[in-house]
Nucleic acid binder design. Sequence first.
DNA 1: CTGAAAGCGCTTACAG
DNA 2: CTGAAAGCGCTTACAG
Lengths: 344, 344
Amino acid sequence: MKNKRSNRVSLKDVANRAGVSKTLVSAVLNGKAKQYRISDKTALLVLQTAKEMQYSPNMIARGLRTGKAELIGLIVTDISNPFYSTISRIIENKTSELNYKVIFGSSDENLSKTEELIDIMLNKGVDGLIIVPCEGSQKLIEKLHNNNVPVVLLDRYFPELNVSYSCLNNYNATKLATLHLIEQGYKNISLIAYNSELSNIKDRISGYQETMMKNSLETSIHVKSVDINNPTPEIEKALDYLITKKNTEAIIFITNALLVAGLRSLNKMNKVIPQDVAVVGFYGSELFDLFYSPITYIKQPIEVITEKAVKMLIDKINKGENFKFSKSFIEPELIIQDSSIRPK
Amino acid sequence: MKNKRSNRVSLKDVANRAGVSKTLVSAVLNGKAKQYRISDKTALLVLQTAKEMQYSPNMIARGLRTGKAELIGLIVTDISNPFYSTISRIIENKTSELNYKVIFGSSDENLSKTEELIDIMLNKGVDGLIIVPCEGSQKLIEKLHNNNVPVVLLDRYFPELNVSYSCLNNYNATKLATLHLIEQGYKNISLIAYNSELSNIKDRISGYQETMMKNSLETSIHVKSVDINNPTPEIEKALDYLITKKNTEAIIFITNALLVAGLRSLNKMNKVIPQDVAVVGFYGSELFDLFYSPITYIKQPIEVITEKAVKMLIDKINKGENFKFSKSFIEPELIIQDSSIRPK
DNA sequence: CTGAAAGCGCTTACAG
DNA sequence: CTGAAAGCGCTTACAG
């Protein structure tokens, strides 16, 4: 009793009751009865005793022995952000089919938090990591990858790294949005963005930029160093300038937070969508449909993006060294609603 | 090399390099140098070598030995629901201060899924569980509790069970909402709910019911067996009936999903809030503020509710048998906005 | 067909 | 002050 940590039944308990060795019990319960040519009688006995005793294996012990914890680590920027909580749910669903559990952590776009989370998760024995990398984390990810830790990037990637990833095709996303607005007859189209080295942001900006240029239109990009937690004041100033001074007719907001701040500001300024200005956003929410002018938005096939990432990770875990670098860009869809339709 | 599972540095590696025993390294690294009267010189040597080698302990091994995994399991109904993802984030923050990690799972209000999740989490060695219990899970929770597994309920509770919990005071929530509407001069106040044995739902219904009765007003409760995934059609019918046949002047929606469906329906019916009907909801979102008539809602102090639950759980884990049953009802707040102000 | 033994990486009495 | 040994609950060569 001295070293018995819990009252759960162990392999030994089952072996004792069944009158066989632990080896046998382990083999049978792992479905290796045939492989080890264990007699049907013994196998059945073991199976029954295990069931009677409601035995279930201690995964910690198994994990220590096999080096596989059947656990994966998920690092997002903020689990309470609907985009990432949706991703978390999909990861949960996909991995649970494969008997993996997920531990998660939020980095808040912070490098040292990311580092800390990775450390802790590795110590917890995760078999691999799915990471939404924050700005400046390239070296960290590279090191991880070089240490042979299975890792897959989600939502953002590092072009210089041979680390697998699954992302939205962000370039095409803003291209799609821009083309749509051009087709509607808009010429003065502005982009509200913020300053970032992250691939998703950079790609969104260049998708807009290049599409405008190809159509011989002047670009108007408002890259602001907004306070992510309170972007409204900055956005309000920018919008006021764009609409009153620059005759902007249509605006693309490249993140959800920017869109929300934008809608708030436009309401405050008494600008009517799309009469005064057309609007396109990123990533929808059913709540936007309740807005007086339902918002046109870029739809991310989150499910597909996430499933790919999970598949890559599991493959990598299973194949180890033999796994080869894999990347995937998922195509966006433009959901056209009232907010971007040019009034006649 | 044969049994070396990874290239991470182990206690043994540090001990070898420092030329001391594993015991010593373990003691020093766990801050027990003083306790074991280890010489400052040795302690320093160990500390430095460990740092040089970037040693970090394998928590799986430690967990197996100590029986503590520093891991807690969180079971919500759906992690992608903003309410629960917010809860998850708070739990993450609170537990990480205490060096715990969280594994999560979504039950989808499903008993057998809940059961399965609990099993898996126990096998993963969690030290305790925070559970949002689904309907019919009382026996399951009771069994868990009787097996001495530290468990705390969140958001919902079982009055007959001595299992600790932290919940909103749901009774007072609808009481508050009802009183507010009465003060505004409304008399025909309806409640949109659904059928459930869950404490939170039952309490919300009775809070409304009793408040109406105390004020000698007739109750009008629409308890529908709505399809949670697509409540709109059912809600639309109910609203049409209430407003046109029953002269309902104000409506309380007791969940967020019902509110969203309700707003959609009212839009469709061209009913204007609050001119045609006043509305109060549960749980806000910044997106509701973009609605033409910002919605009055019950604010749940999610942070407080969740922190209490975490505290209870950690206390229970630490105190074991000596922990006594603890419950907490957190008081709601009514955020009054345009949707429930009676037009003059 | 079956079992004894080693070992995963720790911690913890215990002995000296 | 320090180290050898046992043991957490498994799996996996290995021997017979």
